[in-house]
Design a protein around this nucleic acid. Sequence first.
DNA 1: CTGAAAGCGCTAACAT
DNA 2: ATGTTAGCGCTTTCAG
Lengths: 336, 336
Amino acid sequence: MKQSSSKPSKVTSNDVAERAGVSRWTVSRALTPGKSISESVRQRVLAAAEELGYKPNLLARSLSTQKTGLIAVVVDCFINHNVSKLMDRLTAELQSQGLRAVVLNVTHYQRVTELVEHADQLQCDGVIFLGATLTDDFVSLTSKIQRIPIVIAFRDCDLPEPFVFTTEDYAAGGEIAELLLQQKASRFAYFGGPPGVSTFVRRQEGFEAKLKQSGISQTQTFHCDNYDQFLAYSVFERYLADTDKSKRVDAIFCENDAIAFGVLDAMRVHECLQEIAVVGFDDVPYAASKSYQLTTYAPPVDTIIKETVAVMLGESPQSKRMTGNMVVRASHLLGQ
Amino acid sequence: MKQSSSKPSKVTSNDVAERAGVSRWTVSRALTPGKSISESVRQRVLAAAEELGYKPNLLARSLSTQKTGLIAVVVDCFINHNVSKLMDRLTAELQSQGLRAVVLNVTHYQRVTELVEHADQLQCDGVIFLGATLTDDFVSLTSKIQRIPIVIAFRDCDLPEPFVFTTEDYAAGGEIAELLLQQKASRFAYFGGPPGVSTFVRRQEGFEAKLKQSGISQTQTFHCDNYDQFLAYSVFERYLADTDKSKRVDAIFCENDAIAFGVLDAMRVHECLQEIAVVGFDDVPYAASKSYQLTTYAPPVDTIIKETVAVMLGESPQSKRMTGNMVVRASHLLGQ
DNA sequence: CTGAAAGCGCTAACAT
DNA sequence: ATGTTAGCGCTTTCAG
């Protein structure tokens, strides 16, 4: 019913042993690099394995070795361009280390705890939260899963236990404020996603602190309940429709690129494209599009990914916040 | 070195059995829904399991049952918005069926065969090629992996063996031709990705066949070696720079939305936005952006995903090509 | 260097 | 309805 007759994978190490005229245990040794075995026997075993098309059952191996090479990756919002970029890098890096990502999509199906516990029972070697918005039940979860390492990447978190690798959001916010100040902007705004999320808060704090240093103590705040370009668009479109040009902000820092795109879309519709300086965050591939030319802050993606995977491999460095770099394009420029 | 002392997961079914005063096998039964067991004993076992914090080792279970619930998903180009959309839907659907996706990212690391064989050894229950560009070694691969079902989704393939679920690309191409003919366009073009890929060919064939019916036998063809917005941009930008307005095409069907975005970007730079009717394919979320308002063809994503997952669950329907629907926005309209 | 015993943790199939 | 036998396919440990 399922496959076409033959079961080529039913070759077991016993079969190979028989064919090579050795014991099953010798077969295991022949296939494990560091083991002591005479070269002649090893060649004989390898040949037999080849002829029979022997493929070791990794499940059985894992049961013995207590290592599966499986890493659960919890993802929040697949559709987000930044998330897909991160997934691309992360899966590539995991693979290069011989690990495999078991994706847990938490976007629609919010029962995170259940999914992560399942991953744990599956004997995954670790769990990575990739830019996932962390809810409260996460705290209870992390105490249950102590068997395997947990890393939170690209999100901040006050818990001491799981490792956290993310961007130095506070400093980044300050850097962006400086860039915007250079444009001689005077009425500043911050546009974030769901309030309370770590990135929202720290980027805003860094941004406003730097502005305050320059004597600007008032900034307008926008937000939308989802990191969604279209939601951001409608919020900002309404603002533009309701606000006289002379009273509008002239510089806006968006918590991420998706929001920035929405803002730029709204500005395009209202034909005020160079009248407000816009800066995003993440540097998604689209930011380079000729239709947006978005100036944005690029997080240190590769470094964070490397650190994250290192933890999965058993290393235990400290949690870190790392700096990225500004990618200067055109959207932060004010016309006239 | 790795975790904080305690190993809560070392509770085994033996421990539970002992505590509940039954045998290990009774524990197994108590946790398996359909099994016959007296309610009193079952409650006792469940209570014992709860107290001990027992979590069955799914790896060991899989070794017995010969089912892991793991599905390998081979993905080509993560960054592509359509791919991330498909990944979102597919992982969600798999999860709702109790399955988990093991992602094999083939974008940078092209050793597909190796990765899929590894997945096979891992005892994955199936393999899904999600819109992956299929190379020749794929053919040799599919003969090796006969133990588990293979599905090719969102790509066509002439092989009889693996299941194929994809869009009726030929018909879709025709539908798009009709829409463009209605705009009174007269100089048609097709812009595809890598030549030879199934979607490239069939969409073009359907497009040109329908045009021919209306007496239009000549269409210009563009292509870029990657489904990349920026590559498409540069190709079309050069075309616009080199071609006098009066000689340009006035309707273009792009093999996918990424290419269409590149084309629109180039048109925006050359300020000829409503002079060429543009239609894309895939209906990625971005297509609805106010900056593009892309008219595009939406494949029957949900249906294809459902069929694909059904095969993983053991059903064996016929390969199918299914029709989607046009999403009419503004990019196909000609100004003046 | 190689063989054998034991066991990873669970379940299918049979026996009671 | 419950306990038992056997075994999934591999590896680690320990003799020889």
